[in-house]
Protein backbone atom coordinates (compact mmCIF):
# COMPACT_ATOMS: atom_id res chain seq x y z
CA UNK A 1 0.00 0.00 0.00
CA UNK A 2 0.95 3.59 -0.30
CA UNK A 3 3.47 4.28 2.40
CA UNK A 4 2.38 7.71 3.37
CA UNK A 5 -1.14 6.52 4.08
CA UNK A 6 0.23 4.62 7.02
CA UNK A 7 1.33 7.91 8.48
CA UNK A 8 -2.06 9.52 8.54
CA UNK A 9 -3.10 12.66 6.79
CA UNK A 10 -2.46 15.06 9.68
CA UNK A 11 1.04 13.77 10.19
CA UNK A 12 1.82 14.24 6.52
CA UNK A 13 0.47 17.77 6.70
CA UNK A 14 2.84 18.54 9.56
CA UNK A 15 5.83 17.16 7.71
CA UNK A 16 4.91 19.20 4.64
CA UNK A 17 4.62 22.36 6.72
CA UNK A 18 7.95 21.74 8.43
CA UNK A 19 9.58 21.05 5.08
CA UNK A 20 8.10 24.23 3.65
CA UNK A 21 9.67 26.26 6.43
CA UNK A 22 13.07 24.80 5.59
CA UNK A 23 13.41 21.94 8.10
CA UNK A 24 15.95 19.67 6.42
CA UNK A 25 15.00 16.58 8.43
CA UNK A 26 11.36 16.91 7.47
CA UNK A 27 12.40 17.41 3.87
CA UNK A 28 14.42 14.22 3.96
CA UNK A 29 11.49 12.32 5.45
CA UNK A 30 9.25 13.60 2.68
CA UNK A 31 11.83 12.68 0.08
CA UNK A 32 12.24 9.13 1.39
CA UNK A 33 8.46 8.74 1.33
CA UNK A 34 7.95 9.72 -2.28
CA UNK A 35 11.27 9.31 -4.08
CA UNK A 36 10.95 5.63 -5.15
CA UNK A 37 7.50 6.12 -6.62
CA UNK A 38 8.49 9.36 -8.34
CA UNK A 39 11.66 7.78 -9.66
CA UNK A 40 9.37 5.23 -11.29
CA UNK A 41 7.42 8.04 -12.91
CA UNK A 42 10.59 9.77 -14.11
CA UNK A 43 11.93 6.47 -15.51
CA UNK A 44 8.93 6.17 -17.79
CA UNK A 45 9.45 9.63 -19.27
CA UNK A 46 13.21 9.49 -19.61
CA UNK A 47 15.33 7.83 -22.25
CA UNK A 48 17.54 6.24 -19.60
CA UNK A 49 18.29 6.04 -15.91
CA UNK A 50 20.64 9.05 -15.87
CA UNK A 51 18.05 11.34 -17.39
CA UNK A 52 15.49 10.02 -14.92
CA UNK A 53 17.82 10.82 -12.03
CA UNK A 54 18.31 14.38 -13.30
CA UNK A 55 14.60 14.89 -13.65
CA UNK A 56 13.92 13.46 -10.21
CA UNK A 57 16.45 15.85 -8.67
CA UNK A 58 15.06 18.88 -10.48
CA UNK A 59 11.56 17.75 -9.65
CA UNK A 60 12.23 17.52 -5.93
CA UNK A 61 13.99 20.90 -5.90
CA UNK A 62 10.82 22.27 -7.48
CA UNK A 63 8.70 20.47 -4.93
CA UNK A 64 10.60 21.96 -1.99
CA UNK A 65 10.78 25.49 -3.35
CA UNK A 66 7.07 25.52 -4.17
CA UNK A 67 5.91 23.66 -1.08
CA UNK A 68 4.46 26.81 0.44
CA UNK A 69 2.03 26.98 -2.49
CA UNK A 70 0.58 23.55 -1.78
CA UNK A 71 -2.88 24.17 -0.33
CA UNK A 72 -3.51 20.76 1.28
CA UNK A 73 -6.64 20.43 -0.83
CA UNK A 74 -5.96 17.65 -3.33
CA UNK A 75 -3.67 14.66 -3.01
CA UNK A 76 -0.09 15.58 -2.19
CA UNK A 77 1.19 12.61 -4.19
CA UNK A 78 -0.75 13.81 -7.21
CA UNK A 79 0.73 17.26 -6.82
CA UNK A 80 4.29 15.93 -6.61
CA UNK A 81 3.68 13.64 -9.56
CA UNK A 82 2.40 16.52 -11.68
CA UNK A 83 5.61 18.39 -10.92
CA UNK A 84 7.68 15.38 -12.02
CA UNK A 85 5.70 15.08 -15.27
CA UNK A 86 6.08 18.80 -15.91
CA UNK A 87 9.82 18.68 -15.33
CA UNK A 88 10.09 15.72 -17.71
CA UNK A 89 7.98 17.53 -20.29
CA UNK A 90 9.97 20.73 -20.15
CA UNK A 91 13.20 18.76 -20.40
CA UNK A 92 11.77 17.04 -23.50
CA UNK A 93 10.73 20.42 -24.96
CA UNK A 94 14.23 21.79 -24.45
CA UNK A 95 15.88 18.79 -26.07
CA UNK A 96 13.51 18.40 -28.98
CA UNK A 97 12.56 21.86 -30.07
CA UNK A 98 12.56 20.98 -33.75
CA UNK A 99 10.08 18.33 -34.61
CA UNK A 100 8.40 19.77 -37.65
CA UNK A 101 7.13 16.57 -39.24
CA UNK A 102 3.39 16.16 -38.95
CA UNK A 103 2.82 12.49 -38.46
CA UNK A 104 -0.77 11.54 -39.10
CA UNK A 105 -0.30 8.16 -40.75
CA UNK A 106 -2.46 5.20 -39.85
CA UNK A 107 -0.73 2.15 -38.54
CA UNK A 108 -2.07 -1.34 -38.68
CA UNK A 109 -2.46 -2.52 -35.18
CA UNK A 110 -1.39 -5.98 -34.21
CA UNK A 111 -3.65 -8.11 -32.11
CA UNK A 112 -2.81 -7.93 -28.47
CA UNK A 113 -3.97 -9.73 -25.41
CA UNK A 114 -3.33 -8.37 -21.93
CA UNK A 115 -2.11 -11.64 -20.50
CA UNK A 116 1.06 -11.58 -22.58
CA UNK A 117 2.26 -8.82 -20.22
CA UNK A 118 1.96 -11.07 -17.20
CA UNK A 119 5.11 -12.84 -18.29
CA UNK A 120 7.08 -9.63 -18.52
CA UNK A 121 8.45 -7.72 -15.52
CA UNK A 122 7.79 -4.02 -14.93
CA UNK A 123 11.52 -3.34 -15.33
CA UNK A 124 11.47 -4.87 -18.78
CA UNK A 125 8.42 -2.84 -19.69
CA UNK A 126 10.10 0.36 -18.54
CA UNK A 127 13.04 -0.51 -20.77
CA UNK A 128 10.72 -0.94 -23.73
CA UNK A 129 9.11 2.42 -23.10
CA UNK A 130 12.50 4.10 -22.75
CA UNK A 131 13.49 2.69 -26.12
CA UNK A 132 10.56 4.45 -27.82
CA UNK A 133 11.34 7.56 -29.88
CA UNK A 134 11.08 10.56 -27.52
CA UNK A 135 7.81 11.97 -28.77
CA UNK A 136 6.05 8.61 -28.89
CA UNK A 137 7.23 7.99 -25.36
CA UNK A 138 5.84 11.32 -24.17
CA UNK A 139 2.48 10.88 -25.87
CA UNK A 140 2.12 7.28 -24.68
CA UNK A 141 2.88 8.25 -21.08
CA UNK A 142 0.64 11.29 -21.03
CA UNK A 143 -2.28 9.43 -22.59
CA UNK A 144 -2.05 6.02 -20.94
CA UNK A 145 -0.49 6.81 -17.56
CA UNK A 146 -1.62 10.38 -16.90
CA UNK A 147 -5.00 10.01 -18.61
CA UNK A 148 -4.71 13.23 -20.62
CA UNK A 149 -6.87 13.76 -23.72
CA UNK A 150 -5.26 14.21 -27.13
CA UNK A 151 -6.26 17.85 -27.02
CA UNK A 152 -4.45 18.35 -23.72
CA UNK A 153 -1.41 16.47 -24.98
CA UNK A 154 -1.39 18.60 -28.11
CA UNK A 155 -1.34 21.76 -26.02
CA UNK A 156 1.31 20.48 -23.63
CA UNK A 157 3.63 19.36 -26.43
CA UNK A 158 2.75 21.99 -29.03
CA UNK A 159 1.62 19.42 -31.59
CA UNK A 160 -1.74 18.90 -33.25
CA UNK A 161 -4.37 16.53 -31.90
CA UNK A 162 -3.98 14.40 -35.01
CA UNK A 163 -0.25 14.06 -34.47
CA UNK A 164 -0.87 13.06 -30.88
CA UNK A 165 -3.32 10.34 -31.95
CA UNK A 166 -1.00 9.06 -34.64
CA UNK A 167 1.99 9.05 -32.29
CA UNK A 168 0.03 7.07 -29.73
CA UNK A 169 -0.97 4.49 -32.32
CA UNK A 170 2.63 4.21 -33.46
CA UNK A 171 3.86 3.85 -29.88
CA UNK A 172 1.36 1.12 -29.19
CA UNK A 173 2.37 -0.69 -32.36
CA UNK A 174 6.08 -0.57 -31.52
CA UNK A 175 5.45 -1.71 -27.97
CA UNK A 176 3.28 -4.63 -29.14
CA UNK A 177 5.92 -5.86 -31.54
CA UNK A 178 8.58 -5.64 -28.91
CA UNK A 179 6.48 -7.36 -26.28
CA UNK A 180 5.73 -10.14 -28.68
CA UNK A 181 9.36 -10.49 -29.57
CA UNK A 182 10.26 -10.73 -25.90
CA UNK A 183 7.41 -13.08 -25.25
CA UNK A 184 8.42 -15.21 -28.18
CA UNK A 185 12.00 -15.35 -26.96
CA UNK A 186 10.88 -16.35 -23.54
CA UNK A 187 8.84 -19.14 -25.11
CA UNK A 188 11.82 -20.53 -26.96
CA UNK A 189 13.97 -20.16 -23.89
CA UNK A 190 11.38 -22.06 -21.95
CA UNK A 191 11.48 -24.83 -24.51
CA UNK A 192 15.20 -25.14 -24.16
CA UNK A 193 15.18 -25.28 -20.41
CA UNK A 194 12.23 -27.66 -20.26
Amino acid sequence: MKEHLKLGLEELKDIIKQSASGDVRAQEKLYRMFAPKMFGVCMRYAKDRTEAEDNLQDGFVNVFTNLKKFRHEGSFEGWVRRIMVNVSLSKYRKQHILYPVEDVGKYETQSFTGNILEKISADELINLIQELPPRYRMVFNLFVMEGLSHQEIGEAMKITEGTSKSNLARARDILKRKVEKLYGKRKTNANYTA
Binding site: A35, P36, F39, G40, L56, I120, A122, L125, I129, M145
Partner: peptide, 9 residues
Protein backbone atom coordinates in the same frame (compact mmCIF):
# COMPACT_ATOMS: atom_id res chain seq x y z
CA UNK B 1 1.77 -3.17 -14.56
CA UNK B 2 3.45 0.25 -14.33
CA UNK B 3 1.24 2.21 -11.96
CA UNK B 4 2.80 0.88 -8.81
CA UNK B 5 6.28 0.71 -10.26
CA UNK B 6 8.92 1.92 -7.86
CA UNK B 7 12.65 2.18 -8.13
CA UNK B 8 15.13 3.19 -5.47
CA UNK B 9 16.99 6.30 -6.60
Amino acid sequence: KLEGFKAEP
